[in-house]
């Protein structure tokens, strides 16, 4: 870990200035990702600003008039997941958060930090390896390497990494909006699905945040998914492991007919992957296993597996069906 200056500035404009003036300055949330990467010498910030004390972060979960819920960026993952309003209205978000990491990490991790956590690609983590994300132009170690954990959708010849977050998969399915503030207090709202990027030619950019911008909150619009939703995560061990594949599946049913559906997948792409092909197929259809199977097959047809992750196509198909089945079943195990 390189030396850095630690500050706890309260003034958000001041923070933006620091971030713009010093491209090597970083916000410090729970530190569960940033400090890990700093110890690995992957991240080398020269200045850290603690988010906890920044004025604009001090929002307290106001449920807006439209019935949407705003979760503060500095709120801890664990508290967000256990917020009674979230549990009741967006149970899939609670499940997604609770499926990630460990109780200790969820107590530390902030919602903003969760969005901006970086990939777990082993080549990204090992500074002895080539990695376009860490060092643009150095090559992608994973492309022809051990890419069992890597992307099957949306990758480029520059990077095949996946975004590791579980929470973000649920947020993508919930059509959340990322609230950011930039220089001079300028506010912006970014639809969640537009927040994270595909790697393209610039894999070093995980998201569309501009220099100087901080995430202040995440807004989740009201929906009627609570009854029929589920977050499914498949992994190499029973707990405390990143997803091989995960699925956030939510639907609104009227007499077993799907009147609204939203599906996102984790572990498959550089960003949470909205399964829009499957969604399109299912809209206005009966919630049956047969339909789920067709939808899943249609979606996974578009997958482009790498040398070691062919299994994700099959797993993705089955996980889509299972998650949809369970969502249709009131979120209960089938």
């Amino acid at each position: 870990m390189r030396p850095f200056k630690f500050s706890t500035t309260a003034d958000s404009n001041e923070v933006s200035k620091i971030l713009i003036a010093n491209p090597h300055a970083r916000l410090l949330g729970g530190g569960t990702n940033l400090l890990d990467l700093m110890k690995e010498d992957v991240e080398r910030p020269t200045e850290l600003v603690e988010v906890g004390n920044i004025d604009v972060m001090k929002i307290v979960s106001p449920a807006s008039a439209t019935g949407s819920v705003v979760i503060p960026a500095v709120e801890k993952n664990a508290r967000t997941a256990n917020d009674p309003a979230i549990r009741e209205n967006f149970p899939m978000l609670s499940q997604a958060i609770l499926s990630g990491a460990s109780a200790q990490i969820r107590n530390m991790a902030t919602n903003g930090g969760n969005l901006n956590q970086r990939t777990r690609c082993t080549y990204f983590y090992d500074v002895a390896m080539p990695c376009n994300k860490r060092e643009p132009g150095s090559g992608c170690g994973a492309m022809k390497g051990l890419n069992r954990m890597h992307a099957i959708f949306g990758w480029s010849d520059k990077c095949v990494a996946v975004h590791p977050s579980d929470m973000c998969v649920a947020l993508a399915a919930l059509d959340a909006v990322v609230k950011v503030q930039g220089a001079n207090g300028k506010q912006r709202s970014i639809p969640f699905t537009a927040y994270h990027r595909l790697p393209g030619d610039q894999p070093q950019k995980d998201n569309t945040l501009q220099p100087g911008e901080l995430i202040t909150a995440i807004e989740i619009p009201r929906n009627n998914f609570a009854e029929n939703s589920y977050y499914l995560k498949v992994r190499d061990r029973a707990s405390y492991a990143f997803a091989l594949i995960s699925v956030a599946a939510a639907m609104e049913l009227k007499n077993n007919k799907i009147v609204r559906v939203s599906i996102a997948m984790g572990g498959v792409a550089h960003k949470p992957w909205r399964a829009s092909v499957a969604e399109k197929y299912l809209l206005h259809k009966e919630a049956t296993e047969a339909n789920f199977k067709i939808a899943a097959a249609n979606e996974m047809k578009l997958a482009k597996p790498l040398e070691h992750n062919l299994y994700k196509v099959e797993l993705g198909r089955k996980a889509l069906v299972r998650a949809l089945m369970q969502a249709a079943n009131g979120g209960k195990t089938i």
Binding site: A78, A81, N82, P84, R87, E88, P91, S94, Q95, L98, S99, A103, A226, K233, S239, G331, K332, T333
Partner: peptide, 16 residues
């Protein structure tokens, strides 16, 4: 004691 949930909690929507 506070009724916090886990990923295994079946009735996650219930009041803690």
């Amino acid at each position: 004691k506070k009724g916090e949930a886990s990923y295994l909690t079946e009735n996650i929507r219930e009041k803690p």
